[in-house]
């Protein structure tokens, strides 16, 4: 074991891992995080906490992770390179680790132009791959990015993202290979709706044996309505929602669309768990956390292993 991470242990024991996520509140309302995390208790192995997602200011991921940790749950600290330079990132990482947070997800982050402060300077001192390298160096060499020794180095289980649906498609496997080489331990993918394309990507991943070097958790997000399906299809960059899926949801009455969305999500999990190299699922139920337990149960991923 490289770390104390529960996620690492679940994966090492050969279980399909299940993670989900909480978006922190837009204000000093810690009870909101507690409510969301409580819903997930017992149904997931770890909970991602987003870092100013879509470039909108929220309670810091670190602070919200701490609240979740204090509840006896396992948070995954998401961190983007958009808002912090390498000094700020490393100090937050040792700070988080000092509070027992031992799993993180290294991202570049959405561009500020999407958020509530489009006028802000973006940092991007590092990109996501250099970020992974830095966290690995902190863990395995006990050194800061600048080269100095760290007292009690943070042992983080290192996650990264992959989007098999972004362009250029043929570069997406080589890009994963770079993240593996940089030192990522697990991957959470963009939401999978286009299963065929995902499988094609996985084929490329297996051809290079990357699935044996990194644990891939397939991302899934249940659709609440046909409106959401259309929005995801047309407005969210890097999202691939096939027409058949939009048609399927629009084909049921409005009050049944949410149920149809859940059904699709469960079917997707059932299908993907058979794909060689898929080691678990990252269920992103955006502002719909209350549905995660149902999805986990219906997909046959409950109960979660006791580690």
């Amino acid at each position: 074991m490289k770390t104390e991470s529960v996620l690492e242990k679940v994966l090492a024991a050969g279980h399909l891992a299940v993670t989900s996520e909480c978006g922190p509140p837009r204000g000093a309302v810690p009870e909101k995080i507690r409510e969301k995390a409580d819903i997930l208790r017992g149904y997931v192995d770890a909970i991602n906490v987003t870092d100013n997602q879509t470039a909108v200011v929220r309670m810091s991921s670190f602070a919200a992770c701490l609240i979740i940790k204090q509840m006896g749950l396992e948070p995954i600290l998401q961190m983007v390179t958009r808002d912090r330079n390498r000094l700020a990132m490393q100090s937050d990482i040792i700070g988080a680790y000092s509070h027992g947070i031992n799993t993180m997800l290294c991202l570049s982050g959405d561009h500020p132009c999407f958020g509530d402060h489009p006028m802000a300077a973006n940092v991007y001192d590092l990109d996501s791959i250099q970020f992974i390298q830095m966290v690995r160096k902190m863990r395995d060499e006990g050194k800061f990015q600048g080269g100095d020794d760290i007292l009690n180095p943070p042992k983080m289980f290192i996650g990264a993202a992959a989007n098999p649906f972004a362009d250029p498609f043929e570069l997406r496997v080589p890009r994963l290979a770079k993240k593996v080489k940089a030192g990522a331990d697990f991957i959470q993918t963009q939401c999978v709706y286009n299963v065929e394309k995902f499988e094609k990507w996985m084929e490329g991943v297996r051809e290079r044996g990357l699935h044996e070097k990194i644990s891939i958790l397939a991302g899934v997000t249940p659709m609440k309505s046909v409106g959401m399906a259309r929005y995801m299809k047309n407005k969210v960059p890097g999202m691939d929602v096939p027409d058949e899926l939009v048609k399927r949801i629009s084909g049921v009455p409005k009050d049944k669309q949410a149920e149809e969305g859940i059904k699709i999500c469960v079917e997707t999990i059932e299908h993907l768990r058979e794909v060689d190299g898929v080691r678990g699922f990252h269920i992103m139920a955006i502002e719909w956390e209350q549905k995660v337990p149902e999805i986990v149960e219906r997909a046959g991923l409950y109960p979660r292993p006791k580690i």
Binding site: R82, S108, G109, D110, H111, C113, F114, N122, Y124, D127, S128, I129, Q130, A161, A162, N163, F165, A166, D167, P168, L171, P174, R175, K178, Q190, P237, G238
Partner: peptide
Amino acid sequence: CSKRLLNGPCGGSSNGKCEINPEVDCAWQ
């Protein structure tokens, strides 16, 4: 690159364009 990424395109590269604006070419493409 809108995020000055040195190791490849982010997940927002679509049809050769940058996620920030369809008028902007994705440098990594």
